[in-house]
Simulated assay, not measured.
Amino acid sequence: MTDSGGAAVADRLDVVETCTRVLWHTDHREWEALVSVFADEVSLDYTSLNGGEPVTLPPDVIAGAWSQALGGYDSTHHLLTNHLVTVTGDAAVCTASFLATHRLASVLGGSLWTLGGTYRFSLKRTAAGWRIDGMVMTAVWGDGNRDLPAQAAAR
Rank of each mutant, 00 (worst) to 15 (best):
M1L: 03
M1P: 13
T2F: 06
D3G: 08
G5E: 13
G6R: 10
G6M: 12
D11V: 14
L13G: 05
D14L: 15
W24C: 11
T26G: 10
T26C: 05
R29E: 05
A33F: 07
V35Q: 06
V37Y: 03
E41Q: 12
E41A: 13
V42T: 04
V42I: 09
T47C: 05
T47R: 06
T47S: 14
S48P: 03
G51P: 09
G52Q: 07
P54D: 03
D60V: 08
G64N: 05
A65H: 14
L70C: 05
L70D: 00
G72W: 03
Y73A: 00
T76W: 05
H83N: 15
H83K: 11
L84V: 15
V85D: 11
T86W: 06
T88N: 08
D90I: 08
A91I: 10
T95K: 12
T95H: 14
A96E: 06
F98W: 03
F98H: 01
F98T: 03
A100H: 02
H102L: 08
R103D: 07
A105K: 13
A105C: 10
S106P: 14
S106Y: 11
S106L: 05
L108D: 11
G109E: 07
W113M: 10
G116H: 06
G116Y: 07
G116S: 13
G117M: 02
S122R: 09
L123C: 06
T126P: 02
A128C: 08
D133P: 07
G134C: 09
G134W: 11
A139F: 01
V140K: 08
G142Q: 12
D143M: 14
G144I: 08
R146M: 10
L148G: 00
P149G: 09
